[in-house]
Design a protein around this nucleic acid. Structure first.
Lengths: 214, 214
DNA sequence: TTCGCCTTCGAACGAACGTTCGAATGGCTC
DNA sequence: GAGCCATTCGAACGTTCGTTCGAAGGCGAA
């Protein structure tokens, strides 16, 4: 195993522990136990606990951005590009829950100087979605509305880590489709043959009609 | 000032500090400084730091639930009740950002026995939305779809604390309307005279048509 | 074998944390 | 004034944290 591979393993183990316990409650001794390395040994690869978090977030975000750009390059039309962006974000999130949870949930856990480069990636990514929305809906140009829609979508997608189980009933791809339809057309079945209604009906035609709050 | 009033002030000050710094990084000495009380003095009102968080979350959630139920009682029709639920959640969130951020962001910061009663409130609240969705859209009955829609909506709404400024360009009521339209009908202008398109157009007819990612 | 370098680690350090304790304060009742 | 109770607090305790340091292990090159 090379140096780089061992660093990579340290980072992904740390991401899993951070995702499970939270960044601040996690101790270097926790990470030592999880990785099998000694307490001091980890400092050969990383300056300290905070750099661990910074590296995890930075690498994860870069991969998300790269994946999004690749998806956009192979998508056609404003609508197709927007759909591709959503699909990529949701599936990537669902398939890398640990890192993405750490990226989403620990967005304020770094010192300002370590936060800055990550915030720059975030600005870039948000602007990317805003420009996709502008291309797809040139008529709905109100700036605040577009921001609300963009952050609404990010909320929908980034909240995944609080409830979603990739091994559960909803596959990552299915979740991406549902969120795409939800964002584009809402829950309301638009027309008798509308896409959202069709998708919903096709999946489970005989589900119970009511569920009581308890 | 009565005992209860002083406890209330301690809780709301603590909520503000927890919202700003996060629960775990906040020290009892931070709270002592923010409240003006002595370090030991706070232990007269509260068993410890964790009970502080538990009380904040429990009281906040109870108020949200009460407000939602009151809203539902004065709403008519399945669609009206669903709209009322969303409007209430968003406006309450926007107007009580500190407590709601602590409720949303520190949902895993309590020990299991302190978490349990709050999780019960949460289950109740989620089931409430699920039943509203079942009433409003009896045709789209697929169970997983309803869950995805519900959690998508909660994500949209609870993500507010990461970006929204109640003093900024979007008033709480306006945000609630936009999220309601977004959830019910999506961003796509449904028809030339569709509600979503009309709302969007009315607010800012001459916004620029493009914005580049940078 | 010897040297030097990359890698690992046991042990310890100083700081900061949540919490406790006993005393002091202030006002009210007899 | 004396006694009592609710309230506040300075000072300290024991623990745990992130980090450091010097030494040791392992291994290829000379």
């Amino acid at each position: 195993m090379t140096y780089d591979e061992r660093l990579e393993r340290l980072l992904s183990t740390a991401a899993a522990v951070f995702a499970a316990k939270g960044f601040h409650p996690t101790t270097m001794r926790d990470l030592s136990r999880a990785t099998g390395m000694s307490l001091a040994g980890m400092y050969y690869y990383v300056q300290g606990k905070e750099e661990l978090l910074a590296l995890i977030q930075e690498r994860c975000f870069q991969r998300v951005l790269e994946g999004a750009q690749e998806t956009l390059e192979s998508s056609q039309g404003a609508d197709g590009r927007l759909r591709g962006f959503i699909r990529h974000h949701v599936t990537y999130f669902a398939e890398h829950m640990d890192e993405m949870k750490v990226l989403s949930h620990e967005a304020e856990s770094l010192s300002p100087q370590r936060q800055r480069p990550i915030d720059q990636l975030k600005r870039h990514y948000v602007n990317l979605l805003l420009s996709l929305l502008a291309d797809a809906f040139p008529s709905a140009d109100a700036r605040v509305e577009r921001r609300a829609a963009a952050y609404g979508l990010f909320g929908m997608m980034n909240w995944i880590y609080t409830w979603y189980d990739p091994e559960g009933a909803i596959a990552p791809g299915a979740l991406a489709e549902q969120f795409t339809e939800l964002f584009l057309h809402g829950v309301t079945p638009a027309a008798p043959s509308g896409a959202a209604a069709a998708v919903a009906r096709a999946a489970s035609p005989n589900a119970p009609r009511r569920s009581a709050a308890s």
